[in-house]
Design a protein around this nucleic acid. Structure first.
Length: 467
RNA sequence: GACCCCUUCGUCUAGCGGUUAGGACAUCGCCCUUUCACGGCGGAAACACGGGUUCGAGUCCCGUAGGGGUCACCA
């Protein structure tokens, strides 16, 4: 039987790092075995689900390069099928109506907590005669779970796990308004979609016992589940909005490449010996369940950024350039960018070589676009001493007389100036840098002088000297 | 609280009974150097603890501690 996996996000929030990794693993697993990867939107909670979230999830997956087979399935559209399964369960005596009110349930839990018992539904309506149903209350439908024995889960990552059936209570299948719950829908949909393997977060592990019982009650085959440990924040706590950086779009905005993100996510919880840089093609060849670790891992932004640097340097430069152009336009406006495009093109190799993120590239050419007169930061100001200004005046004259405005010739001028003045290159390079960029860091000094052009250079130097 | 899972450098991890416990990120030092980086070289840095099993344990078993997850008419 060929492999069918799925990613089943709930559109109650955005696609975050954990979800992205789950999607990646399922996708990789399907590719590895030549199977299909399906997408199912778990929107049975009509109140909390939003279209925005769906769009964002889809975009996030596309950005990562994860393509699903067929159209995404919207779970709520299958409600009738879910209800049909419940009536089968009712007929076969594996489900029943429960008329407990919310306050009764709360009381029940409170009592169990006080007595130190597991907090579960106590089965009040399990064997009651439906004739006793109180008037005016619309019931929920509960699954009649097994009371004795234990449920064995053969997990692809965690191995064999047994959970006592005493731990599993009679879960709600249909809400009072007749809508199906998640617990029912996953089971029915996984079966109907022909899912053979599903990789999902650890947080579903104990739910699996409930779902397994449902599969059995329906006489359906259970997919092979593999529960992967969760990703934690850098402080070791559960990844949450508190970390401010769980959303995938956050990383796109900071100039992380999707390839780097995939590679990083892949290495978080999965390994293939000492391999670190793993292309998508290679990952598809290597991916398997036994490379997945059992312990939770922390998210490390530094490592992601470093990995991103490798991808920036090794990927197709024209692709990087396109992305830079897009972001540059966003930042400075298309007109300004087009006007200065050749400057950026000239500096591109150096920039790509030394940057770890797209944003770093963009920021290192801020000086090109700064409005004149440019502003100087503290470090630049510190460099612009009186002695430095004297040197700047002198070198400005040299530039004025320069006949051949090429980077090579500019370097000649500066180097012979250094010799003449008996100073170190740094003594003049840093003041020039400050004058031209308003900061103390920039691309190579000769290339920025060349790129800015003679009149601009003269102008900026004279502005700086007047400071 | 009950149940389930986890535990190797600061972080991600390799290791699948015999290793000087390896790699990567971060960190420190040196080199390169006009700045910031990139790159190169080198250093420091880990088997949570306690019992077993075994000739031999990071590797197997049992406890303890710590961490995580689940206990909804959320998914």
């Amino acid at each position: 039987m060929s492999v069918v996996t799925r990613f089943a996000p709930s559109p109650t929030g955005f696609l975050h790092l954990g979800g992205a990794r789950t999607a990646l693993f399922n996708w990789l697993f399907a590719k590895r075995y030549g199977g299909k990867f399906l997408l199912r939107i778990e929107d049975t909670d009509r109140v909390r689900s939003t279209d925005d979230a769906i769009t964002q999830i889809l975009n996030g997956l596309k950005w990562l390069g994860i393509e699903w087979d067929g159209d995404p399935i919207l779970q709520h559209s299958r409600a009738n099928r879910h209800r049909e399964v419940v009536s089968f369960l009712m007929d076969s005596g594996r489900a029943y109506k429960c008329y407990c009110t919310a306050s009764e349930l709360e009381e029940m839990r409170e009592k169990a907590r006080k007595q130190g018992n597991p907090v579960r539904y106590d089965g009040t309506w399990r064997d009651k005669d439906p004739q006793d149903a109180p008037p005016g209350i619309s019931p929920v439908v509960r699954f009649k779970a097994l009371i004795e024995g234990e449920t064995i889960i053969d997990d692809g990552v965690q191995g064999k796990i047994s959970i006592s059936n005493k731990q599993v209570d009679d879960m709600v299948l249909l809400r009072a308004d007749g809508s199906p719950t998640y617990m029912l829908s996953v089971v029915v949909d996984d079966h109907d979609m022909g899912i053979t393997d599903a990789i999902r977060g650890d947080d579903h592990l104990t739910n699996t016992a409930r779902q397994t019982q449902l599969f059995k009650a329906l006489a359906w085959e259970t997919p092979k589940f593999s529960h992967i440990p969760l990703i934690h924040g850098s402080d070791g706590s559960k990844l949450s909005k508190r970390h401010g950086s769980v959303e995938l779009g956050f990383y796109e905005k900071m100039g992380i490449l999707p390839e780097a993100m995939c590679n990083y996510l892949l290495r978080l919880g999965w390994s293939h010996g000492d391999d670190e840089l793993i292309s998508q093609e290679q990952a598809i060849k290597w991916f398997s369940l036994d490379g997945i670790g059992k312990s939770p891992s922390r998210f490390d932004l530094d490592k992601l950024i470093n990995m991103n640097g490798h991808y920036i340097r090794s990927s197709d430069h024209s692709k990087i350039l396109d992305e830079c152009y897009r972001l540059l336009c966003l930042k400075w406006g298309k007109e300004a960018v087009d006007e200065n495009k050749d400057k950026f093109i000239y500096l591109r190799s150096e920039l790509i070589q030394k940057s770890n993120t797209i944003i770093q590239i963009i920021e290192s050419i801020d000086f090109i676009f700064e409005k004149k007169p440019i502003s100087y930061d503290d470090k630049a100001l510190k460099i612009l001493t009186n002695e430095a200004k004297i040197l700047l005046n002198k070198i400005a004259n040299e530039f004025l007389e320069c006949k051949d405005w090429s980077e090579e010739h500019i370097e000649e001028i500066v180097r012979s100036f250094v010799k003449k003045e008996n100073i170190k290159l740094g003594n003049i390079a840093q003041p020039i840098r400050s004058a031209l960029t308003g900061t103390n860091t920039s691309p190579g000094i000769f290339s920025i002088i060349f790129v800015l052009g003679r009149s601009e250079v003269i102008k900026r130097i004279s502005d700086a000297v007047k400071k």
